[in-house]
Amino acid sequence: MNITTLRGVLLCCSLVTLLFTVGCQRQQEQITLRMAHTLDQEHVVHKAMVYMAERLEHYSAGQMHIQIYSGGQLGSERELIELLQIGSLALTKVSASPLEGFVPKMQVFSVPYVFRDSAHLWAVLNGAIGQDLLNSMQKARLHGLGYYDAGSRSFYTTNKAVHQPADLKGLKFRVPNSQTAVQMVQTLGGAATPVDWGELYTALQQGVVDGAENNPPSFYLSRHYELSKYYSLDEHTSVPDVILMSLPVWESLNTQQQGWVQQAMNDSVRYQRELWQEASDDALAKVKAAGVEVIYPDKAAFAAAVKPLHQSLQGTEVGDLMAEIALIQAETAGASND
Results as ranks from 00 to 15, higher is better:
residue 114 V to I: 12
residue 187 T to M: 10
residue 87 G to D: 12
residue 327 L to V: 12
residue 197 W to Q: 03
residue 326 A to T: 09
residue 309 L to G: 08
residue 318 V to W: 02
residue 286 K to Q: 00
residue 93 K to M: 10
residue 101 G to E: 12
residue 305 A to E: 04
residue 97 S to D: 14
residue 175 V to H: 09
residue 245 M to W: 11
residue 86 I to K: 15
residue 47 K to A: 04
residue 246 S to T: 08
residue 205 Q to F: 09
residue 234 D to A: 10
residue 287 V to W: 00
residue 300 A to D: 08
residue 226 E to W: 00
residue 82 E to Y: 06
residue 116 R to F: 01
residue 262 Q to P: 14
residue 48 A to T: 07
residue 289 A to Y: 01
residue 91 L to Q: 10
residue 23 G to W: 10
residue 264 A to G: 07
residue 93 K to R: 06
residue 173 F to K: 06
residue 300 A to N: 11
residue 49 M to A: 07
residue 223 R to H: 11
residue 311 Q to K: 14
residue 42 E to G: 02
residue 307 K to Y: 04
residue 115 F to R: 06
residue 174 R to F: 02
residue 67 Q to R: 15
residue 191 A to Y: 02
residue 36 A to M: 11
residue 249 V to E: 11
residue 234 D to G: 02
residue 304 A to K: 10
residue 212 A to Y: 04
residue 232 S to C: 06
residue 218 S to F: 01
residue 20 F to K: 15
residue 42 E to S: 03
residue 255 T to H: 14
residue 196 D to Q: 09
residue 82 E to N: 13
residue 197 W to N: 02
residue 316 T to I: 05
residue 284 L to P: 00
residue 154 S to R: 09
residue 206 Q to G: 04
residue 202 T to V: 07
residue 55 R to F: 13
residue 286 K to I: 00
residue 23 G to K: 05
residue 285 A to R: 00
residue 116 R to G: 03
residue 251 E to S: 14
residue 313 L to A: 09
residue 298 D to R: 04
residue 29 E to S: 14
residue 239 V to H: 04
residue 72 G to P: 06
residue 207 G to L: 07
residue 77 E to R: 03
residue 320 D to C: 02
residue 212 A to V: 00
residue 332 T to C: 12
residue 27 Q to F: 12
residue 8 G to H: 10
residue 69 Y to M: 07
residue 230 Y to V: 07
residue 78 R to C: 07
residue 60 S to V: 11
residue 161 A to Y: 06
residue 57 E to M: 11
residue 40 D to E: 11
residue 58 H to C: 10
residue 3 I to A: 15
residue 100 E to P: 06
residue 101 G to Q: 13
residue 225 Y to E: 01
residue 335 A to C: 12
residue 231 Y to I: 00
residue 190 G to D: 04
residue 336 S to Q: 13
residue 234 D to F: 03
residue 91 L to A: 12
residue 262 Q to K: 15
residue 132 D to H: 10
residue 262 Q to E: 08
residue 207 G to M: 01
residue 160 K to L: 07
residue 67 Q to C: 09
residue 275 L to P: 05
